[in-house]
Design a protein around this nucleic acid. Structure first.
Lengths: 241, 241
DNA sequence: CCCTCCAGTTGAACACGTTCAACTAGCCCC
DNA sequence: GGGGCTAGTTGAACGTGTTCAACTGGAGGG
């Protein structure tokens, strides 16, 4: 899932919560984030109260709301952290794998394994992300920067693979692969099988299927169908209205 | 695609809210549902309070919780009712349209037009869809009746269309079409264009594309790829009775 | 006729997320 | 040094969803 980085979200929102302008302020903000993430991990999101966060951070209840519009917004801090970790994990994989299939599988596997410790509240993140009203929602204008960053990563996945693609498809594929990743994550969130065996099976089979579909779509014989599909994407602009 | 099953332990909802056992009770339950749906439509979900629901229903606050475990559970009543209304709207369409494309387009258009009054809070459906803990989640056991009804409807859509399909594909297609419908609804939820023009465009283009993909998948020439895709579904599906 | 029983009903009470008017502390300008 | 100015801070107060112990009404048995 791809949520906007903290700073971008704050700058885009009209009534955004202020960033700290003071070293004292920055310290408070940090203490609040640290307290929140620790409590989320210890007790889960629902059982963590804002009062408990404020108490552990050593600030007043209202102070947390000076830096974070809502409890939900505290999750953004977690997301920012986890996305950076994901980039780090993916870097060596992309350096090693040279086939599209290997690169995709590596990326997706790294994603779900990196998120594994947070499986129980990753669902909550996705929940906010699916709400059209929420600024955390990946289809929102506020998130466009992050969305582009995420699709750019898939652009890199494609660029490093030995692959010949029609130009029109190549332009749209990163967005489509991002949607694929989102689907895998949605599946993973619901997956309760031991070791997330089902999600691993999904990645294994679906990735290889996706790669075959891509090469099928590249077949000149099927160009009309491909054009039709791409026209659909143009008409609705894949990221959503 | 099927999502993984939930824990059997939780499935056995031990403290399920009782159905009414009395005519007086049935009346109360009905008044509460009516009040809730009216208020949801008038003010949206968030701005509807349980106190307002109880007041309009003419019962005490606590009484609503005798029949519904939570505010969220009131939404299930909406889903059930909306599906019934959908069936009524779809009936004449399926009686008239004889091509798969016409039947699908008719069904999807009826869906989003029927849901239009509830657009502003329909986003909650997907919030719940993303939350594995929620009983409203369409993949949950509590929703299995609705889910099966929905896939059964797509079975009817297929049965009434003049179409030759490989048997293996035919068996899985209703589920796949249901996922297609869910995707359209997800798009619609985020659609803020006037008259939902974008969603109508999506239905127009995507349906015709889906129909072509189905006939492509039926091509004996592509049987290996089709088998591979169906094996994927088998691998991640629940082994049902 | 009264007693028992229990589905149904009640609203006060609770804990929570969130808001807000008032306060504090450090910095800058005169 | 004093007088603002404002980022930062405070906790009481509000409205919410939810819980619960107490109550009610009417059906059925004696």
């Amino acid at each position: 899932m791809n949520l906007p980085p903290r700073d971008a979200a704050r700058d885009a929102a009209p009534d955004a919560t202020p960033g700290a302008r003071t070293s004292r302020g920055e310290e408070s903000r940090q203490k609040i984030v640290d307290a929140a993430l620790a409590l989320f991990r210890e007790k889960g999101y629902e059982d963590t109260t804002m009062r408990a966060v404020a108490e552990r951070a050593g600030v007043a209840l209202g102070n947390a709301y000076y830096y974070f519009q809502s409890k939900e917004h505290l999750l953004q801090a977690y997301y920012a952290r986890s996305h950076e970790a994901h980039l780090e994990r993916v870097k060596p994989i992309l350096a090693r794998e040279r086939t599209l299939e290997g690169r995709l599988k590596g990326l997706l596997t790294a994603k779900i394994e990196g998120e594994e410790p947070y499986h129980r509240f990753a669902g909550l993140l996705f929940k906010s992300a699916a709400d059209p009203e929420s600024p955390l929602n990946p289809f929102s204008p506020e998130s466009s920067a992050t969305r582009q960053a995420a699709t750019a990563l898939f652009g890199e996945v494609l660029a490093g693979a030995k692959l010949r693609l029609p130009q029109d498809l190549k332009a749209r594929l990163p967005q489509l692969l991002w949607l694929f990743e989102m689907s895998v994550i949605l599946f993973w969130i619901h997956d309760r099988s031991p070791g997330r065996a089902r999600t691993h099976a999904l990645i294994e089979h679906a990735t290889s299927l996706v790669v075959r579909l891509i090469s099928l779509a590249s077949n000149p014989f099927l160009a009309p169908l491909r054009k039709k599909a791409l026209r659909l994407l143009d008409a609705i602009s894949v990221a959503g209205p």
